[in-house]
């Protein structure tokens, strides 16, 4: 399976990256190179294996339903690029083209 430029563009839109034309060209070649290498995985026998997506074989790690103090609002907002009325401020949402 190799990707076309259009598909790479679609991926970049999914990942919210406004890539330049140059980047798309370059990434398309590189992504296909990597995808080609990853085909190697087809040689590995994974018969009967269950996916192991966790780093550690533990279960049932939970906490009790206890309220803990929240962060001071000033420290919450300190890194905000823009704020108003103690809220984070962003440009309005337009429907996607």
């Amino acid at each position: 399976m190799s990707l076309t430029k259009e598909q790479v563009k679609e991926l970049s839109s999914m990942a919210r990256l406004a890539l330049t034309e140059e980047e798309i060209n370059c990434f398309t070649v590189q992504i296909n190179e990597i995808l080609g290498y990853l085909k190697k995985l087809n040689e590995l026998s994974i018969e009967g294996e269950e996916p192991a997506p966790y780093g550690v074989p533990l279960n049932n790690i939970m906490r009790e339903d206890k309220v803990q103090s929240s962060f001071n609002r000033d420290s919450v907002l300190v890194n905000a690029p823009q704020q108003e009325s103690f809220c984070f401020k962003v440009l309005k949402v337009l429907e996607e083209d």
């Binding site: 919210r16 990256l17 406004a18 330049t20 905000a80 309005k92 949402v93 996607e96």
Partner: peptide, 23 residues
Amino acid sequence: GVRYGYRSEEQTDMISMFRQTRE
């Protein structure tokens, strides 16, 4: 670019803000 970190100046709406900021 909403809560912290870099936010692009090149923005016309929220989605372009996301895309430009990340780019």
